[in-house]
């Protein structure tokens, strides 16, 4: 019994091998077997998993010339997205809008690429034009939609929206960002200017540049004193030179206080944006998991 099976198996194998070698005999004229669609696809997938996206795209494009595959279109879009070529990624996702299985996920990715590119206005219009019923990824999109308000200068929506769309795990973090966004702790440029007009350097001290403020105060008082002293001693020319310098540094001190406040505020915005982007990155921009890509 056992011997018999081996025998049949071997016979089968011989036939198989003969057939195969016959086939190969015919194809020796075209030795580029590695460039068959199947093999290009396999190799492309390997490159994709190695994150060698540009080369993977080339392989996928070659495959797409021969057959249509929504998954591959998506993977090309995804590759461009990973390479930070967002408009290109977007154009590939656009091709999937009529796809049966991938249109919803493509819609989300279009939103996400716009978000990553910083087109927050576009994200808003895209999201508002969509209906919650026709998209399984509506909650994911909503999270990105409300995140845009954190990163641009538009008025924040009511906090209940954030409580609604962000789940338990992320809610407390988002609410912290929400509070930070409402009370950023900016320094007023006007107040800085007024303070420096009254007492030179005070505006800078208010903004936190204590050393610069004291220096500005000293510059103004020394130059002012020198101007006054020379007027008193009837050194007209010197007096006017010092008066001019005092005026210049007095103006410069007010100007500098305003710009120092601006830079301070830019720092607050910068740190907020950075922290919020780290938060988004931690949650992978609320993307769903794409199991189909690993097929």
């Amino acid at each position: 019994m056992k011997v018999n099976t081996i025998k049949y198996f071997t016979v089968f194998q011989i036939i198989f091998v003969l057939l195969n070698s016959n086939l190969i005999g015919q194809t020796t004229a075209a030795p580029t077997n590695y460039f068959s669609i199947r093999n290009r696809l396999k190799f492309g997938n390997d490159l994709f998993s190695q994150k060698d996206y540009l080369r993977a795209i080339d392989e996928y494009q070659a495959v797409l010339k021969k057959m249509r595959s929504d998954t591959l279109l998506f993977k090309i879009g995804y590759s461009y997205e990973q390479m930070k070529c967002f408009p290109k990624a977007n154009s590939f996702y656009q091709k999937l809008l009529n796809s049966k299985s991938l249109s919803e996920i493509a819609k989300f990715e279009i939103l996400k690429t716009n978000f990553l590119e910083g087109n927050y206005g576009k994200v808003k219009t895209l999201h508002i034009s969509q209906d919650s019923s026709d998209n399984a990824y509506y909650p994911n999109e909503a999270k990105l939609f409300y995140s845009t308000y954190m990163l641009d200068q538009n008025e924040l929506p009511d906090s209940s929206n954030y409580k609604l769309w962000f789940n338990e795990a992320t809610q407390s973090e988002v609410m912290k960002f929400y509070r930070r966004k409402i009370n950023p702790g900016y320094k007023s440029e006007t107040l800085a200017a007024v303070l420096s007009t009254v007492v030179p350097g005070l505006g800078k001290i208010y903004v936190g540049e204590t050393g610069d403020g004291i220096t500005a105060f000293l510059f103004n008082s020394i130059l002012g004193f020198l101007a006054y002293d020379n007027f008193r001693a009837h050194h007209k020319l010197r007096a006017w030179i010092f008066t001019g310098l005092t005026a210049l540094f007095y103006g410069g001190n007010i100007y500098g206080s305003i710009s120092a406040a601006q830079i301070y505020n830019a720092g607050i915005r910068f740190n907020f944006d950075k922290d919020f982007k780290v938060f988004l990155n931690n949650h992978n921009y609320f993307s769903p998991k794409y199991y189909f890509m690993n097929k």
Binding site: Q13, I14, V17, L18, N20, I24
Partner: peptide, 12 residues
């Protein structure tokens, strides 16, 4: 038989 199979498959 197996031996033959191996010999034959070597061109492959």
């Amino acid at each position: 038989y197996m031996f033959i199979a191996i010999v034959l498959s070597s061109p492959l």
